[in-house]
Design a protein around this nucleic acid. Structure first.
Length: 645
RNA sequence: GCCGGCGUAGCUCAGUCGGUAGAGCAACGGUUUCGUAAACCGUAGGUCGGGGGUUCGAUUCCCUUCGCCGGCUCCA
């Protein structure tokens, strides 16, 4: 009898009869493993537990404890969904259904849209199919024969996929009524799926192409245990509570108004205070780090944007030009050309480089109507923009300084986790990028060197570069683990050439400088939105629009409370007196709901001792303390811009 | 832009199978003067997102437009 030798992760090798399945191997080790195993990794490839093994190979079982186990599990969950859909809606045509970071989805073509009620019915059907414990059966088809079969079933989307992607002999998976062109692997049967939920139905397009068939995408998620599922659902609820659009309204920070138009932000007084604090900090830092602050016009002649290349590369993101006295003017979508004009306003010497022009520059970009989202995606926004003009040999130091600056931003605003990405060109798509291979290699090398020298772990993202140069992106991770891309440091050897930038070198000859384009917060609007969600509206003292509210216990304490508020304001603390005719409890509640960090209660005892009873937003009543001591305490926290206190 | 859902008082929402609307909270007035998360009574508040159509009559049905929400695509 033919045998195969399988090597386990611990190095042990065992002999099995040929065509043994991974499931049998698992059983031979123990019933617990056989029950836990989802798929197996044989010879480096993930395979079904029921796939016969014909050759000697290393073998490893994939269990729920590994990330790829969860991926497979969710992929199988998507098949379960499709099987349920075909039971209840035979007129639906499956498209694709992969696992995602938080669950899975499946796309269908169907004349009638799915409703929320349909989701409940589908979930019930899925539970039925789990109880029925249907196998995920792997079958093979010859390409022509399989194509014919899918055509007969009317699965035109699957046919397209098979035509494009299938090997001459391709695999498919059968689960109940659902047959899918699929590479696999899958878990053994639907009975293994323990906890799942369908979350929403949304529109999508076949292959993500907006001109292709409109599809309906059903989103769901699944976990190995009900407890994990409930935790996940709870997390979604928590995220909703932090929604900056909700908090922006509740805390009166900003608004977006129909009368003005979509994607245009009105900063209310309280949001304005926070913006001013952010900007003040930023300007101080810019000056300290050798930047020059500049201001440039919001609209400039159109021809400038032709020179920069924006009219050809960026047209679909620009508002239309406006006629001005036989000439055309363009609302600026970026600040670079303005800064370049300042550079060009006179002859530059190598001695002045690097020149760092910074501007809180407000730009307007045309965004398609469906993409706006609160503060995170708008049509008018202010970038904390800067352009650094320097010599090639200064480049690495400048990039390093930018990245260090970015980290200082993160720390200041209480973010302690981040991810760094190096966006490089796609080596197989040279036509897509301006500049020579040599320039690109040098640019990417410079960015990579800098990150390595700084000991910063990063991921290289091929194909993610901008057309004019590679970039470093810093994604911060917020209080509940969501990544946000704000900081970008981009290398640009395109614009200096287009505008004919020069400097006189030590050799007395003219040279072309290189340019670094960087934004740290990205846009003030987006950053504010992220900040609101990060802090869930409970801003640290230095950012809080109202830093303290003074609460007299009854009317006879109003005069003293007014003095307290006055003293705080003299110390430049944003204090408000709340002497409304409401019970103390009600006023405390209002202050808590407004996330006011410090409440100062003033009653008989306090008035007699020139003191205040301090109540903190987070830890509650702190008891009576002298007023001057309290002011010192607050001033210190504000001046140090403490993000935690 | 595309697919689907939605737009009623400042906010959250109910309601009218076509006969021009209601609650809670907020606001305002009064009573109450209170020690750490909602006192009580009363008053006022709506061109039912805008425009057009059908109809004796439209907030309700149809069309269109603007905006919002969930996605797709794109992005700071």
């Amino acid at each position: 009898m033919k045998t195969v030798h399988l090597t386990f992760p611990d190095g042990a090798t065992k002999e099995f009869p040929a065509s043994v399945t991974a499931l049998d191997v698992a059983k031979s080790i123990g019933p617990r493993l056989a029950a836990d195993a989802l798929v197996a990794r044989v010879n480096g490839r993930l395979v079904d537990l029921l796939t016969p093994i014909e050759e000697d190979a290393p073998i490893q079982f994939v269990t729920p404890s590994s990330p790829e186990g969860l991926q497979v599990y969710r992929h199988s969950s998507a098949h379960l969904l499709a099987a349920a859909v075909l039971e209840l809606f035979p007129d639906a045509h499956p498209g694709v259904g992969p696992p995602t970071e938080t669950g899975f989805f499946y796309d269908f073509y169907r004349e009638k849209p799915f409703t929320e009620d349909d989701l409940a019915k589908l979930e019930a059907k899925m539970h039925e199919l789990v109880t029925a414990d249907l196998p995920y059966e792997r079958v093979y088809y010859d390409k022509d024969e399989g194509l014919k079969l899918f055509k007969e079933k009317g699965e035109f989307l699957k046919c397209e996929l098979i035509q494009e992607k299938a090997e001459p002999l391709f695999s498919a998976y059968k689960t109940g009524r659902f047959l899918d062109f699929c590479r696999g692997p899958h878990i053994p049967s639907t009975g293994r799926i323990k906890a799942f939920k369908l979350l929403s139905v949304a529109g999508a397009h076949w292959k993500g192409d907006e001109h292709a068939y409109p599809l309906q995408r059903i989103y769901g998620t699944s976990f190995f245990t009900e407890k994990e599922l409930q935790e996940f659902l709870h997390q979604i609820e928590e995220a909703k509570k932090r929604d900056h659009r909700r908090l922006g309204k509740d805390l009166d920070l900003f608004s977006i108004q129909d009368d003005a138009g979509a994607g245009l932000i009105f900063w209310h007084p309280k949001g304005g205070v926070i913006r001013k604090e952010i900007e003040d900090w930023l300007r101080e830092e810019l000056v300290a780090r050798g930047y020059d602050l500049v201001f440039t016009p919001h609209a400039m002649r159109l021809h400038l944007w032709e020179t920069s290349g924006h009219t050809s590369f960026y047209r679909e993101n620009m508002f239309g030009p406006m006629d001005v006295e036989n000439d055309q003017y363009q609302l600026k979508p970026m600040n670079c050309p303005g800064h370049i004009l300042i550079y060009k306003s006179r002859v530059r010497s190598y001695r002045e480089l690097p020149l760092r022009f910074a501007e809180l520059g407000t730009v307007y970009r045309y965004e398609r109507s469906g993409v706006m989202h609160g503060l995170l995606r708008v049509r008018g926004f202010t970038q904390d923009d800067a352009h650094i003009f320097c010599m090639t040999e200064q480049l690495e130091a400048e990039v390093q300084a930018c990245v260090e600056f970015a980290f200082s931003v993160l720390r200041t605003f209480g973010f302690d986790r981040y991810q760094v990405e190096l966006s490089a060109r796609d080596p197989n798509d040279a036509a897509h990028y301006a500049g020579t291979d040599e320039e690109w290699n040098r640019a990417e090398g410079a960015l990579k060197n800098t990150l390595e020298r700084m000991n910063i772990p990063f991921k290289v993202m091929p194909g993610e570069a901008v057309f004019y140069g590679p970039k470093i992106d810093v994604k911060l991770v917020d209080a509940i683990g969501r990544p946000w891309q704000l900081t970008t440091v981009q290398f640009d050897f395109n614009l200096p050439r287009r505008f004919g930038l020069e400097y006189v070198g030590a050799d007395g000859k003219l040279h072309t400088p290189v340019m670094v384009h960087r934004a740290l917060l990205g846009s003030i609007e987006r950053f504010f939105g992220v900040l609101i969600e990060h802090y869930a509206g409970a801003f640290p003292l230095w950012l809080a629009p109202v830093q303290a509210v003074v609460l007299p216990i009854s009317e006879r304490h109003s005069a003293y409370a007014r003095d307290v508020a006055e003293a705080l304001r003299k110390a430049k603390i944003r204090a408000q007196l709340d002497d409304r005719n409401e019970k103390l409890n009600a006023r405390i509640r209002d202050a808590q709901l407004q996330r006011v960090p410090v409440m100062l209660v003033a009653g008989d005892r306090e008035a007699a001792a020139n003191a205040v009873a301090v109540r903190r937003r987070d830890t509650g009543d702190q008891g009576s303390r002298p007023l001057d001591e309290t002011i010192r305490w607050m001033r210190e926290l504000i001046d140090s811009r403490a993000s935690k206190w």
